[in-house]
Write a protein that binds this DNA or RNA. Sequence first.
DNA 1: TCAAAAGTGTTACCTCTACACCCATGG
DNA 2: CCATGGGTGTAGAGGTAACACTTTTGA
Lengths: 235, 235
Amino acid sequence: MQNIITNAMTVYPQVARVVVAVDCIIFGFDGRQVKLLLIHRGFEPEKGRWSLMGGFVRGEEGLDIAAARVLKELTGLEGVYMKQLSTFGEPRRDPVERTVSVVYFALIDINQYAAPLSDRFRAEWFTLKKIPPLIFDHREMVTQALVRLRQDAETQPVLFELLPAKFTMPQLQSLYEGVFSRKFDKRNFSRKVLASGLIVRTKAKEKSGSRKGAFLFRLNKSRRTLRPVFEHIAN
Amino acid sequence: MQNIITNAMTVYPQVARVVVAVDCIIFGFDGRQVKLLLIHRGFEPEKGRWSLMGGFVRGEEGLDIAAARVLKELTGLEGVYMKQLSTFGEPRRDPVERTVSVVYFALIDINQYAAPLSDRFRAEWFTLKKIPPLIFDHREMVTQALVRLRQDAETQPVLFELLPAKFTMPQLQSLYEGVFSRKFDKRNFSRKVLASGLIVRTKAKEKSGSRKGAFLFRLNKSRRTLRPVFEHIAN
DNA sequence: TCAAAAGTGTTACCTCTACACCCATGG
DNA sequence: CCATGGGTGTAGAGGTAACACTTTTGA
């Protein structure tokens, strides 16, 4: 087994080299529920079980690039919101060979491309309450991603990545309720979101889904954070 | 150059293997200022410049374990608060050979062991405003760590890791002021911290540092978070 | 006795939460 | 005409921020 050294670099002697992979946690929102995209493994190890979408990092590829490539292979999507979560490296987490996995999570609007999916890979969306058993330490990765998603959603408008360009207030509220697993009061919710200045009401209405129709909103591009900074212990 | 495979595992064919390292960002507090521990490199590459303390991950070693080992090699400390920050893996970040570095940050009370330092390595504490140029992408690592430290400090009582078991209110306030780079009103600050129930006043006073003396406080072990959870968009 | 740091209370404002009814429309 | 989901306002409570003076004691 020859180690792959890609050019004439000198090397560190006596140092173990390991396989580095990326795994992608893909969250989606379909207008009603927050979901997680999983693939049904058609290969060993753990053939036939569910897992995150992953792949090995190539020789000349940075980690972010590798994650974007893996996401594209599965969903066909590019330019998606994607963030590094953390790295898993227990020596025996992958039974085949020691593999250090850098985990990313992505947020996408499910409806925008329900189509591109499922071809090369058997991929399915699962609601957060019905996640099947996952291989290796993937379940722990998902748990961490959810914690992080909530943290981020508290301070930054990340959840808008999961929505189409125009969305209704009830959709936005369902999204927040899904991510935080709790209900919000719709009057307080809409007042608070509007007060943030992040979204703007358009004149159009979405008429499917209710007889009355719901106003469509869009992001106000000039705003980037929900609050300047929040300090728990502060003046 | 033989790849090191530690046992009879089968392997993934055709996959690049790379060196995995850990780098430790060590924040400390001396009762007045928040500081960062750096080492003066006595070896190539970048000999003579400043860097974070790092080391390669060994064959049978998990990432957290590797980081703890590296921290111990430098400071002699064990059982310290340590958390994974993120992973850096640009192909040419290390000119010697491709190296993926998993970054950890640790929080310690400087006074507790000013001694154990500086022997094997030339290590020095730098205030956050006087960080020298660092090698590779270490400066970016530090920047990210500071952002994360602030985020964490907003929701969790992590900063207490930087303090001795007993500390004064002015010390605590300097710590928060150092981390957030701003001043707080001492009346509001102490009221707020005390209202959190996180700390308890003892009868003892710290008499050095002021003529009047300042009450010593200690952590109230039963409390774990500053607030249950905070939602920006919530009910 | 005075310089230096520690300690303490009140008020105005703003934000958060709880809560219930009317509106528009398609069937 | 009625069932369904969408939209809105108000009042009470709680938290935040601004603000200045007194205490202690070592030198």
